[in-house]
Design a protein around this nucleic acid. Structure first.
Lengths: 342, 342
DNA sequence: CTGTTAGCGCCTTCAT
DNA sequence: ATGAAGGCGCTAACAG
């Protein structure tokens, strides 16, 4: 058994040309049934496997797609990637993963490396927004390779994106708290340089105003997405002269931290204080005091992102498509905010 | 600005040969400083980027590594992949992700696709064990490409693996329960066709015997790794004539389900019943009644797997190395099994 | 229906 | 110090 065989090896074996072998293997119609059969059998016998690298070099198509995320070990991003992979796999594409760790330098570096590796497209959730960054993005566009944002996007002309309606998510969460009778709703607002957090904040604010409630700056705390940040935030809020009676957290982790601190201080949830998070992390459902949260349907988002990429790559007319897909978030109400019968 | 340039474009621009350009760009010592500088500047000006695909075809080295996992959206596998990526990225390798969904057919298919894509190695956590499968694995070995198992391995000659000591994990968890005073310890044992679950089971059994406790077949339930399976298992156990007073679950999810059912039936944890899980999923720590669990240090496992791969690939002598790395599991005791002061 | 040729972009002998 | 040539493995255009 030969360890590695090329179409040339098969050709030599059969005393025919490599081109014929190639044609036979690729189901080219103008090949006699006899030779096709012969070639196929010999290929199998010699354990021939097509070298996709050579094919890629020749065709200019690698069938690889780069995916860039801040980190992969978060339920959200892992699920998005799962969706992407599941949608792309049947189409013969491979997914190459890169992490940025929220570091913009690494993000730009990753984009360049992926381009050098000749990926057919890049799907990414940005870490940051600057002018320099925008230029790099545009360079990708110039190469005529699809680049698609998911979740964390940036407004650049000609670039498609798949996001959820964060505004609506923030609005729904806040409205729900209002319906539960909460009067002073605080907000843990995340990194405001990112659109997603801006929009959750806007939704929160608008919901307050639409329901005749006063917007209070003191109730808005900029927090990181971590349990500790949530604990700290709750401490701050509870020490206010007039503490709030509810929190809409833009992050489940911060929400969890807040709940821990509230309990620590003997605050009764949901009777005296309600909490809603964002992200629908698995743990929100598992807790004894389950946490209400806004679901971002990451699997769906991944699949949709992949679909937009496929549309774009299969778009033979040369016109550039710009598609903005906005998924609808879904509020899952759980114990942490359910005062009425459940 | 040219959209795409090759060394030939640079050569033409400077009226020199492509070979010289290549040499200059690759820091070949026998190039005059003048031309090198010239080439570098022009390359920058023309926005030249090396085509890694061509390089890969020529050198037979793609700098891609395939990683095959049952699924990516579990904390464990996502963390392992993170570790792999972090270790491999600085070395210039890319990580290509494939999911099997525990389907052996897809696993074999994935291996073949990765080989055709000319990856430099394959890191995988197997889904299943059959003779056919073993043959495919051997075929990879014959190609002289490193293949490394992590977590879920299979004993094949010449293949390295990185695992944790599941036996020890099971032993420690069980011993801990004994120390807490539990007398009738049950075990939710997972898919016994996989080594990891076999070993956790063995550790459990041996711990019982070593401490003069009786091993009771009725207390061992084969369960899937899911909350529902845990609920069902708890129901079964509680309906026994002599129900157990503790559970060592080979899965955190099943452990969680069991806890939910125990509470449902009014059993007091940890006073009347202790539970220890396996995997140290994030939620085990977050619960109000936090769940004791055995940590598998997935990040470490990923990094170690990558290191073993690098060792193997950089091993110039042709001798085949077989390395079995076994990480030490760490029991995190939490409320679900802490009767004594915490 | 099949063979010949050429080229994707790169690097590396072998010359000079 | 540089150039010319060939080949990694594949397919598509051009011949017949």
């Amino acid at each position: 058994m030969v360890e590695k065989s090329t179409i040339y090896d098969i050709a030599k074996e059969l005393n025919i040309s490599a081109a014929t072998v190639s044609r036979a293997l690729n189901n080219n119609p103008k090949i006699s049934l006899a030779t096709r059969k012969l070639v196929e059998d010999t290929a199998a016998k010699m354990n021939y496997k097509q070298n996709k690298l050579a094919l890629a070099l020749r065709s200019g198509k690698s069938n690889n797609v780069g995916v860039i995320v801040p980190r992969i070990d978060s339920n959200f991003f892992a699920s998005v990637i799962r969706g992407i992979e599941e949608e792309l796999h049947p189409e013969g594409y491979h997914v190459i993963i890169c992490q940025t760790h929220e570091d913009q330098k690494r993000e730009i570096e990753n984009i360049n490396t992926l381009l050098n590796a000749q990926v057919d497209g890049i799907l990414l959730s940005i870490s940051n927004t600057t002018k320099e960054y925008e230029n790099v993005i545009k360079r990708v566009l110039n190469k005529n390779k699809p680049i698609i944002f998911f979740d964390r996007k940036m407004n650049v002309n000609g670039i498609s994106s798949v996001t959820i309606n964060d505004y609506e998510g923030g609005y729904a969460a806040t409205k729900h708290l209002i319906n539960e009778g909460c009067k002073r709703i605080a907000h843990l607002s995340g990194d405001q340089s990112l659109e997603i957090y801006q929009n959750r904040f806007k939704g929160y604010k608008q919901a307050l105003l639409d329901h005749g409630m006063k917007f209070n700056e003191d109730y808005v705390l900029r927090t990181k997405s971590s349990v500790d940040a949530g604990i700290a935030a709750a401490k701050t809020l509870l020490s206010l002269p007039t503490p709030p009676d509810a929190i809409f957290s833009s992050s489940d982790f911060a929400g969890l931290g807040a709940i821990q601190e509230l309990k620590e201080q003997g605050v009764k949830i949901p009777q005296d204080f309600c909490v809603v998070g964002f992200g629908n992390e698995p743990f929100t459902k598992f807790m004894e005091l389950s946490i209400s949260s806004v679901d971002q349907s990451p699997l769906e988002m991944g699949k949709m992102t992949a679909k937009v990429f496929l549309e774009q790559i299969n778009n033979t007319d040369n016109l550039r498509i710009e598609k903005k897909v906005i998924l609808v978030p879904e509020l899952h109400t759980r114990k942490s905010s359910s005062r009425h019968a459940n």
